[in-house]
Simulated scan of single mutants.
Amino acid sequence: MSASEVPPPGAPPPPSPPGDAVPSQQESVAELLRVVLGLTESLVFEFDAEGHYLSAWTHSDSLLVMPREAFLGRHISQTMDPQTAALTLESIQRVLARGQPDRFEYSVEVEGGRRWFSADATLVPHRPGVAFMVRDITRQKTLELSLLQADRLAALGTLAAGVAHEVSNPLGYISSNLHFIEEGLAELRRALGEAPGLERLAHTLEECEEALDEARQGTTRIRNVVGDLKTFARGEDTRPGDERADVRRAMEMSINMAMPELRHRARMVWHPEEVPLVRGSESRLGQVFLNLLLNAAQAIPEGAPEKNTVEARLRAEDGKVVVEIRDTGQGIPPENLKRIFEPFFTTRPAGVGTGLGLAICHSIIIAMQGELTVESTVGQGTCFRVLLPTT
């Protein structure tokens, strides 16, 4: 452009040549907003006072329950569950009444599973409704739940270790006294054998010895359970990666602890094979196996243990240790199967289950660079499979 072609100050810029389209200011702002939303994993919605969508901005539709265009004009109750819709409407009314920002959290089922969100509502100058900045906080929420569960497990571990210690002391002298009685009865039997006409007393003595033997078996059982509790409660005392775990020992410890729950529901079938050690915490593995065994037991109603089984298998395969826990319980419906590893998801009544057990199991196995998968058929049973690397 020559000097004579330079536009005067204040003159509008010359039009762009044909084919060299320049985005409008509105298009540029919209594109910038999409970039920001993508970086922050956020969504922006705008509602009128009654809860109808006026606009929606997203980086992609992956976090939405339906395509973005389908929201416009709809009422919140048509796109969200009743609880979330009610929270949103209450937030809109508070913002309009007070003129102050508002915040609440909610969760919703989307294509990739259940996600947690934090919604910040505010008035926007020169706009007709209330705008919501919605952030995906699923990772933060999962971490919070894991930390909460870790604290609870630490407290439970301390309690279990204390109980185990308190039980060990009286168990020691009970065991010693039983041994003393056993020796005394043996001496008495020898004396009775030398005296004629005391057959009835000898029979009574034999029954006492049988009862004593059962008592000794009970104390041995208690000692084993106490030892398992101590192992379970000890937790990790080495740096990650330094510890080697005996998978068979962890499973057998868990079976011992789960038997009070299992024996009234099913027969326990255990198929162990010799497998190499794996890298990780044996107590953490025991926590996983115990949880899976208890879940298997609770999937089977009480009263017919001869008709049901909980089967555990241990083998080495393709450089990995494989553990399978299979039950003949009621099975898991397909719509629930994809969500069972989500924190707080449970099909049990309120107060019966927290929905954290399987989520914690999954995180423990993933931390050991392993895999935890599940297969289930309604009415036939469920199989959880744990794969752990040996190197």
Rank of each mutant, 00 (worst) to 15 (best):
G10D: 09
L188W: 10
P128Q: 07
V275K: 03
C208V: 14
S376P: 13
V130W: 02
E31H: 11
M133E: 12
S91Y: 04
P276W: 09
L143G: 01
E183P: 01
A49P: 05
L54S: 05
D120F: 11
Q380H: 12
H165A: 15
G227T: 11
I181E: 11
L387T: 06
F117K: 05
T373C: 12
P196Q: 07
V95D: 02
V322C: 05
S363R: 10
S283H: 04
E243M: 09
R249N: 09
L205Q: 14
I300W: 01
H179W: 12
Q78I: 13
T328L: 08
V163P: 06
M251D: 07
D151I: 04
G51D: 12
G329F: 07
L358Q: 01
V278N: 03
R348D: 13
P276Q: 11
A367Q: 14
L64Y: 11
A121K: 00
A233C: 04
P125C: 01
L64P: 11
L262P: 00
F341Y: 15
R34G: 08
S376M: 05
L171D: 10
A85I: 04
L314T: 06
A70M: 14
A56L: 15
F104P: 02
P12G: 03
F71M: 08
A160V: 12
V44A: 11
S42F: 13
V288N: 00
M368Y: 09
I365K: 00
T391P: 02
S118Y: 01
E187S: 09
D81M: 03
R385T: 15
T122K: 00
L143Y: 06
S2V: 14
Q78W: 06
R139G: 12
S16V: 12
Q330P: 00
F117D: 05
S91V: 05
R265Q: 08
M257E: 07
R279C: 08
L356M: 14
T219L: 00
Y53E: 08
V29A: 11
S176R: 08
S2R: 06
G197H: 13
R279F: 01
V124S: 06
E50N: 13
M253P: 00
L229P: 01
G331H: 07
E27S: 10
E194M: 07
P82L: 10
E306Q: 13
S28F: 10
G355S: 03
R114G: 00
